[in-house]
Design a protein around this nucleic acid. Structure first.
Length: 479
RNA sequence: GGGCUUGUGGUCUAGCUUGGUCAGGAUCCGAGGUUUGGGACCUUGUGGCCCCGGUUCAAAUCCGGGCAGGCCCA
């Protein structure tokens, strides 16, 4: 098991982000990227543990809020796909078709998204008002034959560990309340679990599905100053229910289409966390999602093994009491090697315990994110859960600072280029007209106006046409 | 879609300009020993030039094609 145990792999400086990112994924044992199928990767034991841990967090969160987990088949009949023609037009070129049988007949498509699989069934399930709401989610793989450059966890051809919530409601108001709770789910996963601040923005309407009411999109700020779309919560209105015929009979006998909400995200959560928190030594995991929160490294000298291991047992007892996820590294290799292994893997805290510490009734505590090593009395070990919480908080506030410092407010069109080329995000007043949007975005190649501020603080004059404006537009390069 | 670039044991890599004792190093893995407070050390063993064709007395090296990666830009 070469890959599960550590291998000594070089990690570039983080300023060279593309290279650094691939090396960290490999060195930390997240993915094996040598699988010979473009855009598809092998989840290694440690990487999958982290991803599954995050998945358990959203399972718990969704189910505590009344959402039910379901599973729909991976193969979607083509006539389901064709029910939403505009959608299929956009997706069919990047769809995988499944052929089987001696005549190679096309059996269907691997799902590029969940809608075409799920909504035809919703249509059957909904007859009366009592059948609503439907509140379900699934965690699955989606498949897209990407023609762009693929990048592990960021742009895959098999999008793994992807959750999507699909809900259907009797009224518009109920749907809006549902959307609000999805926003809270995303905020919780980002801030509370991953210690990641994000841009939560509104999409310009022409970027939403035809007929949709609106969408919140999430964008992560990557180390190279580009932004990455990272999940969305969509208020579909009745756009999809009309396509898929999801409707119920009202008391007066008339028919009403369901109001629908969908929300999804997956591996990009992890991509953003790795990119934000990682450093030149490797991964740095936020304690709340780290599968191993504390690693214990015993330092063994000949003849003194027993003493050390007796103390290790005491430490384990305390950690058990605190319900901390720990791992005792008893491998027969040198301590220095173990230190580095677990640093690359981003374990938040390491406890070193050797004969000297046993004498002094203490341990050495190393914290990964600030690389500090301090001694701690055995009697103080029960504070370790607070140490982990402190780390979590500090990681969030550090990331928050970077995000806030990256935003530059501009008042003139010609200032945008300088900000974006400086690897920052430009923010400006915008009147809401597409014409002005196009004008502002076209000042540089590859620029994207990725949304407008959700929490509006003030208003001013449109950066393009100078008319009074109540919206703030963000512009940056994007993934 | 356009441009640039790379392919050497399991992994990382030297060699390519100027063809010829160059297939070298490191790591991993196996065996033995000594160790363990920041990637230990010594002895020893296994294992490699992406594929096809061309030029040549001679190709990892030059040329053509294929396949597979990586990076940048639309």
């Amino acid at each position: 098991m070469v890959k599960e145990d550590s291998t000594y792999e070089k990690i570039s400086d983080k300023s060279n982000f593309s290279e650094w990112y691939n090396q960290v994924l490999s060195a930390a044992g997240i993915l094996d990227m040598s699988y010979d199928m473009k855009g598809m990767f092998v989840w290694l034991p440690y990487g999958l543990k982290i991803m599954r841990f995050l998945q358990h967090k959203w399972d718990e969160l969704f189910q505590n809020n009344g959402l039910q987990e379901v599973y729909f088949p991976q193969i979607v009949p083509l006539h389901y796909c064709e029910m939403n023609e505009a959608w299929w037009e956009g997706f069919k070129d990047e769809g995988y078709k499944v052929i089987a049988g001696s005549d190679n007949k096309v059996q269907g498509a691997l799902r590029p998204t969940g809608e075409p699989a799920i909504y035809p069934l919703y249509s059957q399930w909904v007859r009366t008002r009592n059948d609503l709401p439907i509140r379900m989610y699934e965690t699955v793989s989606s498949f897209r034959y990407e023609t762009k450059q693929t990048r592990p966890l960021i742009r895959d051809r098999e999008i793994t560990n992807w959750f999507e919530i699909h809900t259907a409601h009797a009224t518009k108001e109920e749907a809006v309340r549902e959307l609000d709770s999805h926003v809270k789910f995303m905020d919780y996963l980002y801030e509370e679990m991953l210690a990641l601040p994000v841009f939560r923005v509104n999409k310009p309407l022409w970027e939403c599905f035809p007929g949709a009411v609106g969408a919140y999109e999430y964008y992560s700020l990557m180390p190279d100053g580009k932004v990455m779309e990272n999940g969305s919560a969509n208020n579909l209105g009745q756009a999809y229910s009309k396509k898929f015929n999801i409707k119920y009979k009202k008391e007066n006998g008339s028919e009403e289409f369901a109001w629908m909400i969908c929300t999804g995200n997956g591996g990009r959560f992890l991509a953003a966390a790795i990119s934000e928190h990682g450093d030149n030594k490797g991964l740095v995991l936020p304690p709340r999602v780290a599968p191993i929160q504390i690693v214990i490294v015993p330092i063994i000298f000949k003849g003194k093994e027993e003493k050390v291991y007796k103390t290790v047992d005491k430490i384990k007892a305390v950690l058990d009491d605190l319900k901390i996820r720990y791992y005792l590294d008893a491998r027969d290799i040198t301590p220095g090697r173990k230190f580095n292994d677990w640093e690359v893997k981003g374990v938040p805290v390491r406890i070193e315990i050797g004969p000297k510490d046993v004498e002094k009734k203490q341990v050495m505590v190393y914290t990964r994110f600030d690389a500090k090593k301090k001694s701690m009395k055995m009697s103080e070990l029960k504070k370790l859960d607070k140490v982990l919480e402190e780390i979590q908080k500090s990681m969030l506030s550090k990331a928050n600072k970077r995000l806030q410092n990256s935003i530059r407010f501009v008042t003139k069109k010609n200032e945008i280029t300088k900000v974006v080329e400086d690897k920052q995000v430009a923010k400006m007043y915008w009147c809401g007209e597409k014409k002005c949007y196009d004008e502002l975005v076209s000042v540089g190649e590859g620029y994207e106006g990725f949304g407008t501020s959700v929490e509006l603080q003030s208003s001013g004059c449109c950066c393009a046409c100078s008319k009074p404006s109540h919206e703030e537009l963000f512009i940056a390069k994007s993934y």
